[in-house]
């Protein structure tokens, strides 16, 4: 509780942050919305100064009916879904493992979380060249050594390869959060379950998993928001070829490569709506925690 004086001071202190974020949100958002209803091809002489033609919902219709749309949806779902499955399952296993007593726990932790701090362009390039290259890559050498044919991962199994790269980047995040949640579990609960005769499988299913459920949800929601926006990994590996064009990449191509701003903006509005649906669930969890 506070006095009147400190209240007005507080308002003044919050104002700059609110104003900036409001501008950062509203200005580009309204521009995107505006462009999405216009024919806007800067390469063909359209410009804001000369006025843009109103085309109604044509861009929205064209974006979803174009031949690249459904493959992009599919690629997005496979990458996001694949990475989520891999990181959550491995993350739970790693979290439980790292929670055990061992020698050098701190160092193992450091090794496990390291990939998160590698910038996306570096991790994409190191996997693309040093590991997945069909001639000189690490995997190619190994396959040859055991008498198998090298595989061109990024063209033959492009989505699988991308899921691997991105999972490697995000596994540390999932592990770290799940580990934090694991450590907050009341040990007495586990001991009580043991006294009640629960074997470790039952303890895992009935005690650990329910305890981790919230953390898993948070991991899924936050990763989904970041994974929907994956960009650099695709740009430096396949540039959207071999079926790896996600929605984000498709919009990027429409806007900056083919400079069809109206169409790209309509795609952008779809992306914003999609992200908001995920965000609502995440916010609900965060909000609940804020009250507690």
């Amino acid at each position: 509780m506070a006095t009147q004086h400190s209240r007005s001071a507080a308002r003044l202190m919050i104002a700059p942050a609110v104003t900036l974020l409001l501008g950062w949100m509203l200005i580009p958002l309204s521009m995107t919305l505006f462009f999405s209803f216009k024919k806007y091809l800067p390469m063909r002489g359209d410009s804001l100064e000369n006025g843009l033609d109103w085309v109604g919902f044509e861009n929205y219709a064209r974006f979803v009916t174009s031949s690249s749309f459904w493959p992009a949806v599919q690629a997005t779902l496979i990458i996001v879904g694949g990475v989520l499955v891999v990181t959550v399952i491995l993350g739970v296993i790693l979290a439980l493992l790292l929670d055990q007593e061992m020698w050098g726990q701190g160092i193992v932790r450091i090794l496990v979380i390291a990939p998160f701090f590698v910038m996306p362009t570096v991790s994409a390039l190191l996997w693309k060249n040093m590991f997945m290259d069909p001639i000189n890559g690490f995997f190619a050498h190994i396959l040859k050594a055991v008498g198998l044919q090298p595989i061109a991962f990024l063209s033959q199994h492009s989505l699988g390869a991308l899921v691997t790269i991105v999972s490697w980047q995000w596994l540390p995040f999932a592990t770290l959060i799940l580990l934090t949640a694991t450590q907050s579990l009341d040990r007495e609960q586990l001991e009580a379950a043991e006294m009640d005769g629960a074997r470790w499988q039952s303890r895992f299913i009935y005690i650990m998993l329910p305890h981790l459920a919230r953390a898993i949800t948070v991991v899924i929601l936050i990763q989904t928001i970041f994974l929907l926006g994956i960009f650099a990994e695709i740009l430096v590996t396949t540039q959207g070829s071999f079926g790896t064009k996600t929605l984000t990449y498709l919009i990027f191509q429409r806007v900056l490569e083919s400079q069809n701003v109206g169409l790209g903006s309509a795609g952008g509005v779809y992306a914003i709506i999609l992200a908001n649906i995920v965000a609502i669930f995440l916010m609900r969890i965060v909000g609940k925690n804020l009250d507690a």
Binding site: L21, M31, V255, G264, A271, A275
Partner: peptide, 13 residues
């Protein structure tokens, strides 16, 4: 919520 705005949606503006 502003953090969750997809960057690509506001790229051109």
């Amino acid at each position: 919520s502003t953090k969750m705005l997809p960057a690509v949606g506001v790229l051109y503006p």
